[in-house]
Nucleic acid binder design. Structure first.
Lengths: 226, 226
DNA sequence: CAAAAGTGATAGTAAAACTATTATTTTTGC
DNA sequence: GCAAAAATAATAGTTTTACTATCACTTTTG
């Protein structure tokens, strides 16, 4: 990625953090290294203690930024979805044709992730893997309704709504634009997981990608329908 | 459900349990009550200790049946998918027309769950909620490849393959039958989750169901495609 | 340069996720 | 009907997690 924009900041929801990690070196280190460590160990085995050792800092200091590792995951996810939204808007901005615009959107969502030099402390490639492997755990909790009302999932929902707008622009008659948008977004990541771990129940691999599958799927739905 | 079949048993994979819970009263009680308790507390807050108190039995006795709560979840999921497979096969058995058969299959997968009197100790309605809320956690782990090679997900994969066969029968030219099958199965449950917790990003509700959405989606894909 | 803010070190708690041992009860095989 | 075996229960103990609390030290800044 080489579209450097001076002082770009992905803004996440108020309240996911106790202290903005973007406001200090330690904060950025916490975020940057937590991505690598969660990617390595998996979310279950990841602890603030281990992260403390890794960054040569203290467990208690990390707690001053994030209430729990669950909140950290919410933060990382919001960051990822905010970044994705920014790419989606940025790269489809000057496409007038609705079909072409939607095609581009699907491409952006399912493309291979590359490091973004605008955010040097964040490894987007590792973060993308975390989203594939851990994102569901951030909302599959008993507290989801409460956290949703706090706005902790608003970036993700906004991304789905943007996609649904693009779908709607192609075919305003289609009844299931919201469900299609949420299915595509969720499905892209799920198919990538299957490709890596359950290859016998997906067609997606290095040649035939989730991008191909969902492009075909979306336009089939939008062309036929009433 | 009123298709009682004498001595029907859903067979799960060897190795998910240390001792077959179907082989004793205590075992069945463990399974039956764990479903209710996980449904109540969520998987994270559920513990064998709490389950022990609930069934008036000892934590250590539960460990003789299941190595960990993770293995218990794998067992419950396998049971659910085995039961679903059985319904799928049973109720679509004598439908000759491929289209009609696939339609029926989608209906079975997305229909409202009713208690099945063939399995008196299992509350299928609660188990269905567990699948919606917790199933992803059973495979989103660092150990997934190892557990997959042990066959712990074979029932689920078999179900996807059955669905893919039905898709294939309708349109053998369609390139993405496997991905479509896995997307539909995963998507049906995901849309139900969204309906309950993120209604702003789904069209599914009491009138317009995930059944409607996926029927439309699947046949759009299969009719158009080359 | 003093106050305040941030960070680090240490200690402590409650609960989870087990394992091990021994006692008691239940089942079963003869 | 009873002894042996199997299943279950009770108790205790271990390690780790997910925190909270306190205080000391260091860095920033007005």
């Amino acid at each position: 990625m080489n579209y450097l924009i001076q002082s770009l900041k992905i803004v996440t929801q108020e309240g996911v953090f106790k202290k903005d990690p973007e406001s200090s070196d330690l904060g950025r280190k916490i975020v940057g290294e937590s991505i690598l460590l969660i990617d390595e160990l998996g979310f279950e085995s990841f602890t603030f203690k281990k992260l403390g050792v890794r960054i040569g800092s203290n467990e208690s200091s990390i707690y001053r930024y994030f209430e729990s590792k669950h909140m950290l995951l919410l933060y990382l996810a919001s960051w990822y979805w905010g970044w994705t939204e920014y790419k989606l808007v940025f790269f489809s901005a000057n496409i007038a044709d609705p079909k072409e615009k939607l095609e581009k959107a699907i491409e952006i969502l399912s493309e291979n992730i590359l490091e973004d030099k605008n955010f040097s402390h964040i490894n987007e490639v590792a973060l993308h893997r975390i989203i594939i492997n851990e994102y569901s755990k951030s909302y599959l909790t008993k507290d989801v309704d409460n956290e949703n009302s706090q706005g902790y999932f608003s970036v993700y929902k906004r991304l789905v709504l943007r996609l649904r707008e693009m779908i709607h622009a192609v075919n305003p008659q289609y009844t299931f634009s919201l469900s299609l948008a949420s299915t595509v977004l969720e499905g892209i990541f799920h198919q990538q997981f299957l490709r890596d771990h359950f290859p016998t129940i997906t067609n997606c691999n290095d040649e035939l990608t989730s991008h191909d599958f969902f492009t075909d799927l979306v336009f089939n739905c939008l062309t036929i329908s009433k």
